[in-house]
Structure formats: structure tokens, C-alpha cells
Design a protein around this nucleic acid. Structure first.
Lengths: 183, 183
DNA sequence: CAATCCATGTAATCGGTTACATGATTCC
DNA sequence: GGAATCATGTAACCGATTACATGGATTG
């Protein structure tokens, strides 16, 4: 799957392995991530399979950079995959939910403390996402008459915001239910 | 982390490895899962570490079963972990979001088709979750005056329902945005 | 001139999945 | 009697993380 994440990014513009790992920490991090220890070997493999190629650039006088781009076969393979319906993946693991599932082990006060702690972190994450949204798309996003890259950017960012909102709402519900036990 | 999932389940009642793998496919699947190929070795290790022990039972006349239970050290280690605040994990990977991020590669009609496809699957999952909720907790869940296991069951199931609702809402938003391009 | 970032790679390890392997029990 | 399920294990493999390793460029 990492394969398609990389191909998709390269379809937008030529990138170095370093660029790709940066994207996995920023834009793309709301639905995918990876580290350079996996990215460089993957690029090597994709290159040997003929799906991507690279041109060497330099920064300063000595530092070598490899700019990767899609080959025709790479572009073809990407289009194939992109419109293939995928089965739902098993629900992602979530250690906080795991802890709360076993809430009977703690006291109510302790469970509440955990929930409030988690809410602080989640709320912070949500407002980071909302800022990014405001920054990139203001109130009403405008795309041209033709779909372009910023449409995909918008849809997944919107999805990330909604996901975090929902998580925070759930934490509110947990708080309410737990507090009922205190009175 | 699998370690604590297993300890938590065993804190509720003695279970066999097979029982545990069943739970990971049913109740617990909304926030954790694993397969027997990982569970049996993990039980062996937890046993060798003195966190769990087992008693051998039989089914019929020949079939041996191992019922695992927590030791005092196991119970202690579990309580330690259960109330330890955890940092937010990186956002889980989601191949559907990955596809939609690269929506510019497809045509609008094709993107819409994918979104609708996904919505059917997600809606089906949501109604399975809602049925389970109705079945176990009817309209207004009642817990005793003391928190018990069914409180944890309720909270995570509620969380799963809210998560899927949010996913479906997001897919609606995607549909709306994409349809605007058709007119 | 030191710290931080840019840039690329490999190796060891780990967590997890899939396949291999075996055999009893239950239900139709 | 055969199929599905119960039940337990191991081995090969794969995806991913962390650590190891190196060195240039930029900025204060």
C-alpha cells in the first residue's frame, strides 16, 4: 500500500525520498505515514520495477539529491489501483479505547481523569486541524471548474476534522456517563 | 500492547487462547484484534513471565483446553498500565482516504462511484453496530450503582457507533462536493 | 563554529499475518 | 460419514520501526 502512497505523491510532482518523508509528517499524515527507513528501500524497489525513475540534482556544490518521477508504467499502475474499490479494513487499534474498555479496573475518578486528559490532547489536535483548514480553504473552499489536487486536499482534511470532532464528542459522552456515577 | 489486551480480558474471566481469538473477532474488534498465530505465543510468554497461569480442562474425553487466568503480578501490572495516560498515536492508515486524496487522477464520475461504494459498506457496518447496541443496551443503558464491565462495553460500543456515523457523514460531504462538479 | 536541518542509505529487530500442521467435537 | 467448528501450536514471511552510519548545507 505504501507503494501507491508514493506513486500518488510522485504523480503530483517529482520528489526526493526526503521530501516524501516530510509529506508523511505533514499534509499526508492524516491518513498515511511512514519513515525514511522504509521509504528509501521502497523507492529503490519501485525504480528496479520500472515504475519510477530519477534524475540527480544537487544542492550547493556537493550534496546529491534524487528526484523521482513516475514512468508511464508507474502512472498506469497507479490509475489501475486508484479506482479499485477496496474492502473495509479491520478497525484500527486504539489503545485509549482499550484502556476505557477495562474501566471497571479503575475507580470512577481515575477513569474520569483519563478521559479528561485524553480530551485535552484530542481537542488540541482538533484545533490544529481546524487552523490548517481555515488557512488553506477559508470558509468556503473554491475549486476551479475542473477537479484538481486541492479537491483531494480538501476532502481528506475535512475528513480529519470530522473524525476528531467525533472523537471529542465521544469523550464528552464518556465524561457524562462517568459523572453520573459520582452523584 | 497485545499484552494488556490479553491481561484485561483475563481479568474478567478465565479464557482459552481460542476464546481470546474469538473475542478479537467479536466484542473487542472495535478497537483491537489479533489472530491465534500471535495469541498462542503471547500466552506462552506471559505465562513464562509469571503474569498468567493456566489450568487444563477437557472437552469431551480427549480434547485438552488451557484456561488462563491472571496471577497477582499480572493483575498488578494490568492496574499499573490501565491508568497510565498514553500519548496520541499517529493517525491510523486508511486506504480509502488515500485513494480519495488522489482523486484528481480519476474522473468525477469515477470518484463518485468509489464514494458511493464505500458509503454502502460503511452504512452496513454502522447498522450492524447499531443493532448490537440496541440488543445489548436498548434505548437507555442501565448500569448498577457501581461501575462494572458493562460500562466499558457500553462506552466502546457507543464510540464505535459514533465513529462510523462520522465516517458516513464525511462520505455524504464528499458526495455533495463531488456532485457540485457535475452541474 | 556549533546546532539544526537537509539528504541518503543499511541493519537489527519487532509486531503481525499467513500458511503449515494436527487432531477432537459437534451437528446435519 | 462429511463438514463446520473447536482447539493448539509452529514456521516462514512481511511490513514497519529504531538504531546505526555518514556527510553536506544553512543559520545564528
Amino acid at each position: 500500500m505504501l507503494k501507491y502512497a508514493i506513486l500518488g505523491l510522485l504523480n503530483r510532482e517529482p520528489l526526493t525520498g526526503y521530501d516524501i518523508s516530510q509529506k508523511f509528517n505533514n499534509t499526508v499524515c492524516n491518513f498515511w505515514y511512514s519513515t525514511h527507513g522504509q521509504i528509501y528501500p521502497a523507492l529503490k524497489k519501485l525504480n528496479s520495477e520500472g515504475l519510477i525513475s530519477f534524475e540527480t540534482g544537487t544542492k550547493g556544490t556537493l550534496l546529491k539529491k534524487k528526484f523521482y518521477q513516475l514512468t508511464d508504467e508507474g502512472r498506469e499502475e497507479l490509475s489501475q489501483w486508484i479506482s479499485t474499490p477496496l474492502d473495509l479494513e479491520p478497525t484500527a487499534k486504539d489503545s485509549f479505547r482499550l484502556q476505557l474498555f477495562f474501566t471497571e479496573i479503575m475507580g470512577i475518578e481515575e477513569s474520569l481523569r483519563l478521559v479528561k486528559e485524553q480530551k485535552i490532547k484530542r481537542t488540541a489536535k482538533l484545533s490544529r486541524l481546524q487552523s490548517k483548514m481555515d488557512e488553506k480553504f477559508q470558509e468556503n473552499p473554491k475549486f476551479g471548474s475542473q477537479p484538481n489536487e486541492s479537491l483531494g486536499d480538501y476532502l481528506v482534511l475535512k475528513g480529519a476534522v470530522m473524525r476528531e470532532e467525533s472523537y471529542v464528542n465521544w469523550l464528552d459522552e464518556c465524561e457524562t456517563v462517568l459523572e453520573r456515577f459520582l452523584h
